[in-house]
């Protein structure tokens, strides 16, 4: 077979259907927007209960985390995500789902090295790089702020 990887790459790209990006984009917008609006609903409700805005915002996020993990356990989150794509990935619910799904999946390898260690296989990098970035920012802020 006389074919270079470059030639084959072209051929393979031609044969491979692209993701239906417009449909994906609209679903991500609607469902992602919906999740954020739901979060806003909780935020407004908590504020109405007399909680200050920052605290209400934190509680709204925690409420979404709770709902996400509930839906993950009930085997529903992945079905929604199949349609929503980034719409369920980008909100805090996606972060929660990645932890909960890993915890559920790897429980069979035990509570410590299965569930405990592997809970972070997807969410871990978010914490590692998020916190590291915040420390770098902190250093800059401390010096120049």
């Amino acid at each position: 077979m006389n074919m270079s990887p470059e030639e084959y790459d072209k051929l393979a790209k031609k044969a491979s259907p692209n993701s239906p990006f417009l449909k994906n984009l609209i679903s991500a917008f609607l469902i992602g927007g919906g999740i954020c609006a739901l979060g806003q609903g909780f935020l407004l409700w908590y504020q109405r209960l007399g909680i200050d805005r920052d605290t209400a915002s934190a509680w709204a996020s925690i409420t979404l985390v709770f709902l996400s993990i509930l839906l993950t356990g009930l085997d529903l989150y992945d079905s929604i995500a199949k349609v929503a794509g980034a719409g369920t990935l980008v909100p805090i619910t996606g972060f929660a789902n990645s932890m909960s799904s890993a915890a559920i999946e790897f429980k069979s390898e035990g509570w410590v090295l299965g569930l405990g260690a592997k809970m972070f296989i997807i969410a871990g990098p978010v914490i590692v790089y998020g916190v590291s970035a915040s420390v770098i920012y902190g250093i800059l802020y401390y010096i120049f702020g």
Partner: peptide
């Protein structure tokens, strides 16, 4: 406002998935 802004931020994520082949974990990070 929450719906539109949140939706747009998710839409950008979707474009990254479909056009850059970035894995979900990389997008989150």
């Amino acid at each position: 406002r929450a719906f539109v802004v949140g939706g747009i931020l998710c839409g950008i994520g979707q474009l990254l998935i479909d056009f850059t082949k970035l894995t979900p974990a990389r997008i989150l990070t």
